[in-house]
Design a protein around this nucleic acid. Structure first.
Lengths: 321, 321
DNA sequence: TTGAAAGCGCTAACAA
DNA sequence: TTGTTAGCGCTTTCAA
C-alpha cells in the first residue's frame, strides 16, 4: 500500500479501485489517521485558504462569519479565522493570516487606515465588508444603508403615516448614510416639513433616552431607529408610557438581529442581507484569486424590509385634510 | 546566504552575527518575505497550536476568545479558531482543528455528548470551558455560579434587604446552579420564607416579563437576575413604572457584560473572571501537552461582584421590628 | 490500478 | 559564524 495511493483515496481523487478505497478507509479509521493539513497545503502550491479578520465584540460579525463559512464551503475553500480583541489589533490578526498563506483576505469592518489596506492588497486580494473604503485596489461589499431607510419610510408612508421620526446612530458606522436615506425618502414623499431626527446611539439605553425625548410634544405616529438594539429601548419606553404598538405608534428597527425575531419582540426591521454579502465577498475573493475579474470594485447589496408586528396603519389622529 | 541562516534570523534563534541579521531582515522586508507557517510547522514536530471551538452567536465566547489569545501568547502558543454556526456543527469545527494538528483542544460551551468528547480526549488533551462535563479524561474550567449568587445576596443583605427575589434563567446553562446558590444564600441568612423565584430567561424581554409579574403584589426591595441582558429588561420595566433605582429597588445582574458597564446602565453585577478562566484553560492545556500534570480535573473559578449604581440601601418600607 | 521518486519551504544536526 | 544535508507528510508525475 503506497502513500500515493492513500493520498488518492483520502482526497477522493479518481484513480483507485473501490476495493482498495474501502481497505484504505477502514485502515485509516482503525488507526485514527487524518491527513496532515500542513503537509498537504505545503505540497500543493495553493492553500485554498481564505483569511477572515473579525472583531470578537461585534455580534454582527458573527452572522457574517456564519455566511462566509457556508459560501467558502460551497466554493471548495476553507476559512482561516483571526480575531481582533481589545489586546490584539488588526495588524496582528492579519499577520498570522499572512503566515498561513491565505490566498485572499476578507476583513470585517476594518479600522486600520486605508493606506495599510492598500499595502496589503498589493500582495493578495483584499475584500472589505461592512465598511466603505474607497481605494482602487480594494474590493468592498456593503449594504445600501440609505436604501434600507428608504424602504422603511416607504412602508410606513404606505400605511398612512406622515409624522415619521428617526432616531439615529450618532457617529456609528452606517449612521450617516441611514440618516441621509431617511431625509431623502421623506423629501420624495413631500414630507420634508415633518422630518425629525432625534440623536440616539447603538444601545438599548440610547434608544430609550431618545424615545423619552420623542414623547415630549406632539409625538410622531411612527419612528425608524438606527438599529434593533436601540429600537428595543424605544419599544420599552413607549409601552411603558401606555402606548400600544402598532395601534398608537409604529417602530422599525435595523439589522434583523436575532432579538428582532423573538416572538415577544416581533420587530419590523431592515435586514442586511448577510447571506448575499458573504456570498459576494467569497465570490469576489475567488474571482480575484483566479484572475477572472481582476478589477476591484464596490458591491452594494440592497437590504430588505422584514415586516413584523411593530408596524401598522397610522392612527386616525389627524384626519386627512 | 544559505536558507539555514535565514531560518536562524527569522526565528530570532542564536547563531548569526548582528551584521548578517540586519542584512537578512532588510532583504526580507524588501522582498516582502514571510516565513511559511505550514512548512515551519511541518518540519518541527510540534505545532504549538491550541485549537479553540467557539459559538459565533455567543457574545460571552467573544470575551473568552480574547482572554485565550492573551494567555496563549504569553505561553508561546498560537490559537487556531474554528467556529460553530447554525450551519456548521461542532464535529465539523473540531475536524478542521484536528487536521491542523492542534496539540490540544479548548471547547467553549460544547453541546456534543460527553461520549464524543471523551473519544476526542484519547487523541489529545481536551479542555472544556463554560460547561460542566463530568468525565475522567476531560479537563473543565468553569465559574462557581452558585457562589456568584451567594455574593450577590450577601451584598444585598448587607445593605439591609430582606425581601430579595430571583429572576432565573430557566433551562439555560448555569441557571440551575445560580438558582441553587440563591436559595442556599437566603437560607444561610434565615430568609427562607422570603425566597421568591420568578421564571425568567436569557433575553431583555424575558427579564421585562418577569419584572411585570414581580410588581404585581408586594414587590421585593431587591432582585437578582440570571444575566445582564434580562436585568436590562427588568430595569426598564421598573423605571417605566415610576420606581427609582436603587432608592426603591435594587437590581443585580450576572456576567458583567459590556453593556453593564455603560454609564447609563451602570449595573451591579456578578463578573465571571474570564481572564482567570482563560489563563487556567491555557495553562491546563499546556500542562497536559507537556505531561506535567497529566490527570484531568475540574477547575472552578470564583466570580466576583462588581458593585455599581443599581444596588443600594434597602428602603425603609418596613422598619426593623 | 498501483508504486517509485521528487520536491513543496522549512528546521535541525552537523561540518567547514 | 556560516553552509551543507536530510527529512517533516504530503501531492504529483511518470513508469510499471
Amino acid at each position: 500500500m503506497s502513500t500515493a495511493l492513500v493520498s488518492i483515496v483520502m482526497r477522493q481523487a479518481p484513480g483507485a479501485s473501490a476495493a482498495t478505497r474501502q481497505r484504505v478507509i477502514t485502515a485509516a479509521e482503525e488507526l485514527g489517521y487524518r491527513p496532515d493539513n500542513r503537509a498537504r497545503l505545503l505540497r500543493s502550491s495553493r492553500s485554498r485558504l481564505l483569511g477572515v479578520v473579525f472583531g470578537v465584540e461585534h455580534a454582527f460579525h458573527g452572522d457574517l462569519v456564519s455566511g462566509l463559512y457556508a459560501a467558502a464551503d460551497d466554493a471548495g475553500y476553507e476559512l482561516a479565522l483571526s480575531a481582533t480583541t481589545p489586546g490584539r489589533d488588526e495588524r496582528r490578526a492579519v499577520g498570522t493570516l499572512l503566515q498561513d498563506r491565505c490566498e485572499a483576505l476578507i476583513l470585517l469592518g476594518p479600522q486600520t487606515p486605508t493606506g495599510y489596506l492598500a499595502e496589503l492588497a498589493q500582495r493578495q486580494p483584499v475584500v472589505v465588508l461592512a465598511r466603505a473604503v474607497r481605494h482602487s485596489s480594494i474590493d468592498v461589499v456593503r449594504t445600501a444603508d440609505a436604501d434600507g431607510l428608504r424602504q422603511a419610510v416607504d412602508h410606513l408612508v404606505s400605511l398612512g403615516h406622515r409624522r415619521i421620526a428617526h432616531i439615529d446612530g450618532g457617529r456609528a458606522p452606517g449612521a450617516a448614510e441611514r440618516r441621509r436615506g431617511y431625509r431623502t425618502a421623506l423629501r420624495r414623499h413631500g414630507l420634508d416639513a415633518e422630518a425629525r431626527i432625534v440623536p440616539g446611539g447603538l444601545t438599548e439605553e440610547d434608544g430609550a433616552a431618545a424615545a423619552r425625548r420623542l414623547l415630549g410634544r406632539q409625538p410622531p405616529t411612527a419612528v425608524t431607529v438606527f438599529n434593533d438594539r436601540a429600537a428595543l429601548g424605544v419599544l420599552d419606553i413607549l409601552r411603558g408610557s401606555g402606548l400600544s404598538i402598532p395601534a398608537d405608534i409604529s417602530v422599525v428597527g435595523y439589522d434583523d438581529s436575532r432579538i428582532a425575531g423573538l416572538s415577544n419582540v416581533n420587530l419590523t426591521t431592515v435586514a442586511q442581507d448577510t447571506d448575499q454579502i458573504t456570498a459576494l465577498a467569497v465570490a469576489r475573493a475567488i474571482d480575484r484569486i483566479d484572475g477572472t475579474n481582476p478589477t476591484p470594485r464596490e458591491l452594494i447589496v440592497p437590504p430588505h424590509l422584514v415586516i413584523r408586528g411593530t408596524s401598522g396603519r397610522a392612527p386616525d389622529i389627524e384626519p386627512v385634510s
